[in-house]
Design a protein around this nucleic acid. Structure first.
Length: 272
DNA sequence: AGGCAGGTTCTTA
DNA sequence: TAAGAACCTGCC
């Protein structure tokens, strides 16, 4: 179905923003996989986009997934060019990025895998994991199969040999344990939605293989709490070099996570 | 060939 | 409590 989107919306930038790992350019548009769903999105002219699904599915799932109820343009307006020129430049450069509303389990596993890996390596691992334990849900325009993200049960059923075959390295035991804990009910990601930020962080940090950085990614991308501010090597370099006096967290609350995305995207492209 | 990649855990003092 | 080492794997 075709829909007009007047707010910030740039598929290429979202695909490259590092928040999602199954969002890829392919012939004729962008292949977007989320949980057990898949859609092909094409950019048309005049702010119009063609989503390869019917209206019911768009309204029921993709509108929410792309967070179309939030104005990222308004969020960008919080940035004062004179007061914070670097962030202003970063936001102009990253204009079009949105924070997707992704599944907490998929994000948790994805960011556990992400540690000490570059983005292509993360994607490769996740793709192998989906092919191994997910179900085929679609084909992209090049005829390549798209698989759902594995359920906790399917992941927990994998042997360690199968897991390490997905190039997880030492993270294989983290993924295994997380899946087991979810299946056993000791970890209830749904129930954690009702926790406040601090309590949620505390629970996440109890997970094997989850430290502060991965927990913040989960809070921002898995729970869509837009104030979470993950600090990775790129962001730390930016904070050190560009904000020796400190970043203006108070100014940007409760949207620091959105600002983090602009900084991350900008710094990575600038090759800082 | 050795170092490093969107960190975290384990060990040691 | 806080540094420092170790950790899988792939890629430059």
């Amino acid at each position: 179905m075709i829909i007009k989107i007047e707010d910030d919306f740039d598929l290429a930038k979202i695909a490259d923003s590092g928040q999602c790992f199954r969002f890829n350019r392919c012939e004729g548009g962008y292949s977007v996989a989320a949980g057990n769903r898949h859609v092909l999105v094409k950019e048309l002219d005049d702010d119009r986009y063609d989503f390869g699904c019917d209206e019911a599915e768009f309204e029921e799932f993709w509108r929410e997934y792309f967070d179309l109820g939030t104005s990222y343009r308004d969020i960008r307006k919080k940035i004062d060019k004179k007061k914070d020129e670097y962030l202003y430049n970063a936001s102009e450069f990253g204009k079009g990025i949105r924070i997707l509303k992704q599944d907490p389990f998929e994000m948790l596993i994805s960011f556990i895998i992400s540690q000490r890996k570059n983005i292509p390596a993360i994607k490769a691992s996740i793709e192998k994991l989906c092919a191994l334990a997910g179900e085929k849900i679609a084909e992209d325009t090049e005829g390549k199969a798209i698989y759902s993200f594995p359920t906790a049960k399917a992941l927990a059923a994998l042997t360690m040999e199968q897991l390490s075959g997905c190039s997880l390295g030492y993270r294989d035991k983290y993924v295994h344990r997380a899946a087991l804990d979810v299946v056993a009910g000791a970890v209830d990601l749904e129930a954690w939605k009702s926790l406040d930020d601090e309590a949620l962080m505390e629970e996440l940090l109890k997970l094997f293989g989850v430290g502060v950085k991965v927990a913040n990614c989960e809070i921002l991308f898995g729970y869509h709490r837009l104030d979470a501010f993950p600090k990775d090597v790129w962001i730390n370099r930016v904070l050190e070099q560009r904000y020796p006096e400190g970043f203006l967290f108070d100014e940007y609350a409760p949207y620091n996570g959105v600002m983090q995305q602009y900084l991350f995207f900008y710094s990575r492209m600038e090759g800082m």
